[in-house]
Design a protein around this nucleic acid. Structure first.
Lengths: 344, 344
DNA sequence: GCACGCGATTGAAACCTTTCAATCGCAATC
DNA sequence: GATTGCGATTGAAAGGTTTCAATCGCGTGC
């Protein structure tokens, strides 16, 4: 009863050969109908299309790819699919690729170098045409191997190995500076930066620039609270740690390395009845949509994520077309967005 | 200068044949090293592995799939990748599949039947082993075709064509009832349901159950405000429409078909200085993480999304192993979560 | 010394599509 | 009536892997 059409299921799969036989043409003609319909006589085409329909023929993509030597798909490896920042960027990439009818395969490294490596290996075997990656681990060697085998690679939101691979990124140092200077501007002097792991370039750059900004104010300090991940849970935990400090050691401002962490911090502070921004000012990073509608609307550093995805896709397509184009680095600028969490 | 290793790039791609020749074995043995390493003598294996490394051989997945007739991958088509509910479900699916080393290909139908159809066609050509889908359009015919060609199909969060396909879903009617009854319980009588498009089964079920709950109260009313999508923007727009009503026609409670819509409604109401929950009570659906940290923490109907993904993946794997297992329907129960937006 | 058994290895066949040089059929031209 | 030109069609080859029946080589038991 669950069975719907046993014949179709048990019968061997239908191939171009079967279609050709049934339509009394050669396989070449069937292939032409599929790929260069204008090359075949309308009458023949109609007949073949009808047979295709009757037999339920579906082109086998594996065979097609084998013959072509490549896969039209583009793979994208992001740090965290649960972070709206990355899904927004991916969405923008997808939109740009849709024009060329190229599917986007999304993979989540979850900031884990071993997961990242296994995704890269898989995409290598799949011979994707191009790849967008926000690297976590030491992947330069693997990326070179891919490139040498003809896979176009563009780095997103990162410039590692920049002499060899084009990239599109947002200036994290500028973002870090903007955030820190804003906190200083609103009179805060005991800053904390929360983010991690410290091995992530994004985290390092934002932290370093923030530290430099703070160091130019003699009376201000900033310290680094490292987290293992960058989600709300990590933010809550980090904030709980800070709450255990004696009152006179508590920070009066928190700069979270992304908005998810900031939202976590906000939850923990609210729960502990610490007023934001009166007692602690709070700024995040990314300006995801939820930042604006948080319990206390969150100040943040806006990254132009739509443009980031679009430009990345464009450059990737260029590299696919012309692998020897000059390596390019597009650096976009972030922007400070002030909301209630830093300006009560 | 962008060129890294011209030899490797220009040279023909390395195949098992090349490896076999260089290692003085047959292709069969190379294949065994790759797929059944225990079958080959340690010394031979070591030699072949070394050659593989030296030559930079990477198995061609297209050829492998062609031979195998299928692709180990599982495809998942969701309504909206920008909705954390679906990324959470997808994440849970991915985790479950990881044990079998099956990659998950995520595709976004964006509630658009034509996008959904083209994804299905693509996955058909790719001969994925299995597919999880939350259907939008009239896809039953396509799904049957896929099933008849050996693709395991499990419906997620929907029961269309339930005699033929197994499914895992959450009881939307129960959810709709819980939401409406809660609003009635806290004394509201002029309800509005916001969601859409009305063709979505989720929307219909939640609405219908809510209407039924309201109808059993003689003095209460509920009306349907249909949106084109289910994101925050749609929520803001719908709320703006309501705000233009004369004060005595305004609702005193809003039931949004998902949390994104609810957050949009909340933004618009806040902007218009309408107090939530005093003037308008607001409840969402899904209980995404952000619901708890919204400006006014959002009451919602929690769906067990982790379990939803896990069970869906498990059933799919069962169907792949044993295509003729009985069709099963797992229905999970949603749960009311009361927060400030309905209980000031 | 021989047959047997068994693990290791072989290599041709199969998977299905696309490509492209060759061929066909037909009409226009000389 | 023969030739040319041209669009439509043909069909064999190529692409790289896996499978599996057949073979090899070697030690064991008689």
């Amino acid at each position: 009863m669950p069975r719907h059409d046993p014949d179709a299921r048990n019968g061997r799969r239908v191939s171009v050969t079967d279609v050709a036989a049934a339509a009394n043409v050669s396989v070449g003609t069937v292939s032409n109908v599929l790929n260069r319909p204008e090359k075949v006589l309308p009458a023949t085409k109609a007949r073949i299309l009808q047979v295709i329909d009757e037999l339920g023929f579906v082109r086998n993509d594996a065979a097609r790819q084998l013959r072509a030597g490549r896969n039209r798909a583009i793979a994208m490896v992001v740090l965290d699919v649960a972070n709206p920042f990355f899904t927004d960027v991916a969405h923008s990439v997808e939109t740009e690729l849709a024009e060329q009818r190229r599917p986007l395969i999304l993979a989540n490294s979850a900031q884990d170098p071993s997961r990242e490596a296994s995704h890269l290996d898989l995409f290598g075997e799949q011979r994707v045409d191009g790849m967008l990656i926000t690297p976590v681990g030491r992947v330069l060697t693997r990326l070179r191997q891919l490139r040498d085998r003809g896979v176009a690679v563009v780095l997103v939101d990162r410039k590692t190995g920049s002499r060899e691979f084009s990239s599109v990124s947002v200036d994290d140092r500028m973002g870090g500076r903007l955030a820190a200077e804003h906190l200083l501007d609103v009179g805060r002097r005991r800053l904390v930066f929360i983010g991690g792991p410290g091995s992530l370039a994004q985290v390092r750059d934002r932290w370093t620039a923030a530290r430099e900004a703070v160091e130019s104010h003699a009376d201000a300090t900033i310290r680094f609270v490292e987290t293992e991940a960058m989600d709300a849970r990590a933010g809550r935990q980090a904030a709980d740690t800070l709450l255990q400090l004696p009152a006179d050691e508590r920070p009066d401002a928190v700069f979270a390395a992304n908005d998810l962490v900031a939202l976590g911090v906000l939850q923990a502070l609210t729960l502990a009845k610490v007023s934001v921004p009166d007692e602690v000012a709070l700024i995040g990073y990314d300006d995801i949509d939820f930042a604006a509608s948080a319990a206390i609307p969150l100040s943040s550093i806006r990254q132009p994520r739509e443009e980031l995805g679009r430009r990345a896709a464009q450059i990737l397509l260029e590299v696919i077309d012309e692998p020897d184009t000059r390596v390019r680095h597009v650096v976009l600028e972030p922007e400070l967005v002030v909301r209630r969490s830093t300006s009560g």
